[in-house]
Write a protein that binds this DNA or RNA. Structure first.
Length: 274
DNA sequence: ATAAACGCCTGGCGGC
DNA sequence: TGCCGCCAGGCGTTTA
C-alpha cells in the first residue's frame, strides 16, 4: 500500500522519465476510476505536456500545460513506462500515450485508485485536496495545531494518524511505526495526549517518514516500485508485520491487534503507556 | 458534530 | 487438486 514515502519515490522516478512529454492519446479501460466524465478527461489531456509532478499527502499531482491531474494509488496502484506497441496486460486500467510513442501505464489489481482533473483555481479549493491536513514536514504542524484538533476527540491515536485531515500521507505501516517511536499504545484516546506526546508525534512522524523517503519506501506485500527501484525501509520496521517476533528494544513479543478495523502491530511492553 | 459501519475490488491463503 | 469463505485496507459514503 503506497503511503507517503512510496508515493514520493514514485514521484521522483516518474519525474526523471516523463517530464516534458506530450500526451497524444488517453485510453481508459476502467471508467469508475476517473472522477470526471470520460469525454472530458480524454479531451482535456490530449495535447498537454507534463511540466512537473508534485505530491500532496498520498496524491500525485501531474502539472500539465493547462490542467492538473491528480492520481491516488490507494492500495495497489503502480505506474509503468512502456512502448506504445507493448501488449496490454491484465490490471492495466489507464494508459497515457506520449508523442514519442512511449506510454505511461497505470496498473491496479484492486481498481481502488482514482484520477481527478483540476485547474489551478480548483486544485486546492475542491475535493479531494481541500480535505487534507498539513504535510508532516510543514512548519505549521506544531503542538497547538494538534491540540486544537485532538483535545475534544475520543478517537484512538492510530485512527487519528490515519485520518488524512490532520496530518496527510500516513498509512497503516507508518502509523504503527510512529506509535512505536512515540512509545504510546495505538489505542490511546487522543484527548489524553499531553503536549510532550503531541511533540513526540510530530518528531516521530518526521523521523520515520524522512527515513522511509530516504530509503525509497517499504517494499512489502504488493508494493514494489514500478520503475525498478526497490524500497529498503521494510528492513527497518520495528513492529509492522512482526507479530510473534521479538522487540528490538526490550525482547518482548510483538503482538497484533485491531484498531478501527485495521491490523495493528505493537510492542506491549514499550507501548504499554496509554 | 462525531464515530462507527459499509462498499468498493481482487488475489492469496487456510480449511476441508 | 479444487472450491469456499475470509482477509487485506484507503477512503468516500451511509448510518447511528
Amino acid at each position: 500500500m503506497p503511503e507517503l514515502p512510496e508515493v514520493e519515490t514514485v514521484r521522483l522516478s516518474l519525474s526523471k522519465q516523463i517530464i516534458g512529454k506530450t500526451i497524444k492519446a488517453v485510453k481508459v479501460y476502467h471508467q469508475p476510476m476517473v472522477k470526471t466524465s470520460l469525454e472530458h478527461f480524454e479531451n482535456q489531456l490530449i495535447g498537454q505536456t507534463i511540466d512537473a509532478i508534485f505530491r500532496r499527502g498520498k496524491f500525485l499531482i501531474f502539472k500539465l500545460t493547462s490542467s492538473y491531474m491528480l492520481s491516488h494509488l490507494r492500495m495497489e496502484g503502480k505506474y509503468f513506462i512502456k512502448s506504445a506497441h507493448a501488449k496490454k496486460e491484465k490490471h492495466e486500467h489507464v494508459v497515457f500515450v506520449f508523442s514519442d510513442n512511449t506510454t505511461l501505464v497505470y496498473h491496479d489489481v484492486r481498481k481502488f485508485g482514482t484520477f481527478h482533473l483540476k485547474t489551478s483555481e480548483t486544485l486546492f479549493q475542491e475535493a479531494p485536496l481541500n480535505k487534507l491536513g498539513l504535510e508532516y514536514d510543514d512548519p505549521q504542524l506544531n503542538v497547538a495545531y494538534l491540540y486544537e484538533r485532538f483535545h475534544h476527540r475520543t478517537i484512538a491515536l492510530k485512527t487519528a494518524l490515519l485520518d488524512q485531515s490532520h496530518v496527510s500521507g500516513i498509512g497503516n505501516i507508518y502509523a504503527d511505526e510512529i506509535c512505536f517511536c512515540m512509545k504510546k499504545h495505538p489505542l490511546t484516546p487522543v484527548f489524553d495526549l499531553n503536549k510532550k506526546d503531541l511533540s513526540n508525534l510530530i518528531e516521530c512522524s518526521k523521523r520515520v517518514l524522512n527515513r522511509a523517503v530516504k530509503l525509497g519506501g517499504s517494499s512489502i506485500r504488493s508494493y514494489t516500485d514500478s520503475l525498478g527501484i526497490t524500497g529498503r525501509f521494510q528492513n527497518e520496521l520495528n513492529v509492522h508485520l512482526r507479530q510473534g517476533q521479538l522487540c528490538y528494544t526490550c525482547k518482548e513479543s510483538i503482538i497484533k491487534i485491531k484498531v478501527g478495523g485495521r491490523g495493528t502491530y505493537l510492542c506491549p511492553n514499550c507501548q504499554a503507556n496509554r
